[in-house]
Amino acid sequence: MPVYKTPKSIIAPSGCCGGCGHGIIQRLIAESIEELGLQDQVIACVDIACSEWSLDCLDYDHIAGPHGRIASVATGIKKVRPDKTVYALAGDGSSYVIGWTETTYAAVRDIPITMIVVNNGIFGMTGGQMNLATTLIGDKTVSSKAGRRRETMGHPVDMLQAIKTFDVEFAARGALYDTKHIDETKRFIKKGFENQRDNKGFSIIEVLSPCPTNWKLDPVDAMEKIKNENEKVFPVGVYTDRGGNK
């Protein structure tokens, strides 16, 4: 029978809304780091918005960057301290919308950092506006009250399909709607840190994560929505794994 221990890196509760996926993701990061023995050399970069909460929860040096620029901030840090474990934790608005350029070029430069993107299909911190990259067609948000319409608002786009063509080390998508998928997500995140430890190149792990508060669903229904709707548009799995062969 497995024994669950709280990672030593976790020094405070996540402080997120009930049913939010951010707390699970923080825990997966902490577990992965400790299982690889990297916990004494971590520099965490968190984006503005809900990712920022982890600043108080994890016992690592932290920096909160300008919204959308976290891949660039992590690039700067990794260049100055190449022997440290540098990760970026950001939302989908940051990584794929306002900061898509910065994410793209961190990937193109193949900076050996670990980037974790929380895909919850919405702008959580600012009160639930539509996310250009990840809100599904028909989903109602406070800035698409009648549901997202393709004709006027464009359509969601799977950025991992683009990133995998940039010749990066690793790109994968996980989900949090059941334990099997949480385990798989953790394997992806851990792989991302292993790649960094072995100086292999840019690794990005996107996680389909619920936002019950802004989706206006209870936590269980939010998980169901991911399984039945979001995953159909954003399939989980490994998009590219270079295996260290640059």
Binding site: R69, T75, G76
Partner: peptide
Amino acid sequence: IQGENEIASMSMLFGASAAGA
């Protein structure tokens, strides 16, 4: 680093400065 734009360049600078350079 020749940045992809000024904002990205400055964000790298922000990180590098925070790291002590």
